[in-house]
C-alpha cells in the first residue's frame, strides 16, 4: 500500500525552483532511499513533507489524506516523524527526558497535568528505547554534552519513541566514521518492517545496506529511480555526480 505520495510537488524561492514537478510514491514497510548531489532538492523534499516549507505547486498525501493545511505538529500526530541533518535535541534536558518528550509527543499537551511525576510505564518504555539506540547508560546525561554520533542516535531514539508510521531520516550517518556508520545502518534496517522509512544519504555503502528502492534527484527534479544496482550503473546518475550531467529534455 502506498503510504505517502507526492504529485507534481514543487517549491520556488525567489527565482529558483528548489524542487520541481516532483512525483513519487513510497510503499508501506519499505526503506526508500533518496540520493543526489548537493542542492538537488532532497532536504527540500523532507521540509515540504513536514510542513516547514509550504509548496508552490503540487500536493502531498499521507495515508490518502492531503497534508496541505496541516501544521507541523498536526502532521507529526498523524504518524510522520523526522530526524534532521543537523542534530536537534533538547540540549538542556537529560537523554531520558529527551526520549520521554518523543514518547509523549503526540498526546494532548494537558495529559498528566496534575500528576507530579512521569508515569512509570512511560519511563520503562523510554528506557527500552534507549537500549535499542545504545544510550541506556547515558540516560541521566545532559543531551548537550553528548558527542555528535550519540546525538544522532538520541534523535533516532526520540523519533522512534513517537511511534511513527513514516520515519524521515536526513543524512543519519553524516559525520560518522566507518564503524559508527555500519552500526547506524544496522539500526536502520532493524527499524524497518512495521515502519516505513525515507532516508537521505550520501554514503553509498550505507544506502546499499539499507535501501529497498532508491530515487535519484538532480537540480530539484526527479532523475531516475530503481534498485541500488539499477541506479549505480545508470550513466545519467554518474554524470550528475561528476558534474557533467544535464538532464535530457
Amino acid at each position: 500500500m502506498t503510504l505517502l505520495k507526492t504529485e507534481q510537488l514543487g517549491v520556488r524561492f525567489g527565482g529558483i525552483w528548489a524542487l520541481r514537478d516532483f512525483t513519487v510514491q513510497v510503499e508501506q514497510g519499505a526503506v526508500h532511499g533518496f540520493i543526489g548531489p548537493n542542492g538537488s532538492g532532497k532536504s527540500t523534499l523532507f521540509h515540504l513533507i513536514t510542513g516547514h516549507y509550504a509548496p508552490t505547486t503540487g500536493e502531498i498525501y499521507f495515508k490518502n489524506t492531503s497534508l496541505s493545511n496541516l501544521t507541523t505538529d498536526a502532521r507529526a500526530r498523524l504518524g510522520l516523524t523526522i530526524k534532521f541533518q543537523i542534530t536537534s535535541v533538547f540540549e538542556g534536558l537529560t537523554v531520558l527526558e529527551n526520549v520521554l518528550l518523543g514518547l509523549m509527543g503526540r498526546r494532548s499537551p494537558l495529559s498528566g497535568f496534575f500528576s507530579g511525576t512521569v508515569a512509570p510505564a512511560d519511563r520503562d518504555r523510554a528506557l527500552e528505547i534507549l537500549e535499542t539506540v545504545h544510550l541506556a547508560d547515558r540516560r541521566d546525561t545532559l543531551a548537550g554534552v553528548l558527542g555528535h554520533g550519540e546525538k544522532c542516535w538520541l534523535e533516532i531514539g526520540m523519533s522512534l519513541a513517537a511511534e511513527p508510521e513514516l520515519l524521515l531520516l536526513d543524512e543519519p550517518a553524516s559525520g560518522m566514521g566507518r564503524e559508527e556508520t555500519k552500526q547506524t545502518a544496522r539500526l536502520v534496517r532493524n527499524l524497518s518492517g512495521t515502519r516505513t522509512i525515507m532516508v537521505i544519504e550520501h554514503d553509498m555503502e550505507f544506502v546499499r545496506a539499507v535501501a529497498d528502492t532508491i530515487t535519484v534527484l538532480f537540480k530539484g527534479e526527479l532523475l531516475t529511480a530503481g534498485t541500488y544496482d539499477d541506479v549505480k550503473n545508470d550513466e545519467r546518475v554518474i554524470d550528475a555526480y561528476l558534474g557533467r550531467g544535464r538532464k535530457n529534455g
Binding site: T50, T71, G105, R106, A162
Partner: peptide
C-alpha cells in the same frame, strides 16, 4: 524552553 521547534516535530502543539 529548550527547543520549541523540535517539540513541534514530535507532535506536541
Amino acid at each position: 524552553r529548550d527547543n520549541d521547534q523540535r517539540l513541534e516535530y514530535l507532535g506536541t502543539s
